[in-house]
Nucleic acid binder design. Structure first.
Lengths: 221, 221
DNA sequence: GATTATCTGTGAGATGTCTCACAGCATGAG
DNA sequence: CTCATGCTGTGAGACATCTCACAGATAATC
């Protein structure tokens, strides 16, 4: 008889993030809304006010803030400035995140323009197959040849890759990024990427988004 | 005693879509993958093959196809051509959907370029506040002044609005679209829109997407 | 025609997420 | 200081979604 035979479950690996994905998304939204509120001079906010801004429910807001261990005060609500700081700590917004863009085409350029200079995200490098783009600088971001990826990702300590290449090339680019040591991927290509377990891929699928809207638009007539 | 008193539940309103949102999204993905397969000459597909392409599980695929009432055959799998047609029927891809873009700026233009000429989506009109854009035609899509929205949406039978304006203007544009009679909205602005119950809003939030990737990238080191 | 392999269809259970209701407490008023 | 107010923190339950395992079925083989 082997040892540990009667362990019905192996000890749970702690890797599974304590914070649900959806909660992370809402925190990102809360942070933006709260920054706006700060700018208008507000200092405290109630869960039902934040819920109204984020178009969700007050218990949902309280549950989310509870999840990140942030406390408010009865009758006074939550201190906005402290809350923004707390959310910044959870999302990685208190340290700079270096990002690499792959694919400087019709999709990649506007993506770069959108994210350019949004602290604490820094686009440290771009890559493109087309040799004539190598060496050019867009929005403060230098373009390299694809075969320099491993070297540049290591040098610039890039943690995140953004894929904006045609569907047919996306998996190859993804493999290259993973090999280079990237820890997360934002994928604009309309395919699903195969990655090692634990590595996070966030898909932005414009075709799927429109298909969903169209479906529900024709549902509710 | 009133008749039917002992009905424990009132007849369910059929409004709640039988098909889960996530399933709709996966169907959109399946359809694309299957089209590619057709092009390579494949005629039949097994659930585990489609699952591999979509990076999900075989039971998930079978459950999704069961949800739309599509049947395969043991030992032969699913007929690809028929399946594409069945998915096209569920998603609204068997009828043309007229769409309006609001905001022909740095975000709106690439969005228009991306979706241009993708059947069965037709961008029937674009709107922009800037008067100098009125009358111009981009990717076969004519630009109108914002105050013509109600008229044009009715004339072109537009069902879906795409919002690509700055955050501060998004809610006003949304209200205008809803008033004009749009049934679904695809929102690229980094805010949550308040809409009448039942009307579907699909958010594409690029900032949130990057925040989520950054969070998980720093989790799994 | 009988047999076998293997794939589908699906009930039932596991999992994850959201909702509700209310106890507890900090604050402001008297 | 004491009380009343109304907001937070959270357990427990509702709900939705995914996973698993296997019964059933069909095509290929002999």
């Amino acid at each position: 008889m082997r040892p540990f035979t009667d362990m019905t479950r192996a000890a749970q690996l702690p890797q599974r993030s304590v914070i649900p994905v959806n909660t992370i998304g809402r925190l990102s939204l809360y942070r933006r809304l709260l920054s706006d509120q700060l700018a208008t001079g507000a200092r405290q906010v109630f869960s039902h006010q934040l819920a109204a801004l984020a178009v969700t429910t007050a218990p949902q807001v309280r549950r989310d803030l509870m999840t990140i261990g942030f406390s408010g005060s009865p009758r006074r609500g939550y201190a906005i400035a402290d809350l923004v700081t707390a959310i910044d700590d959870v999302l990685v917004r208190s340290v700079e995140t270096a990002v690499a863009l792959v694919g400087v085409g019709n999709l990649g350029r506007p993506v770069l323009a959108y994210y350019a200079n949004r602290q604490p995200i820094r686009f440290a490098a771009a890559f493109d197959r087309a040799p004539e783009k190598t060496g050019r600088v867009l929005h403060g971001c230098r373009c390299y040849a694809s075969d320099q990826m491993t070297e540049v990702v290591a040098r610039e300590q890039i943690h995140v890759g953004v894929i904006a290449v045609p569907a047919a090339e996306a998996q190859a680019v993804c493999d290259q990024l993973v090999l280079a040591g990237v820890k997360g991927i934002l994928n604009f290509a309309p395919v699903r990427l195969r990655v090692p377990a634990g590595l996070h891929v966030e898909n932005v699928d414009l075709m799927m988004a429109l298909d969903r809207v169209a479906y529900f638009a024709h549902e509710h007539r």
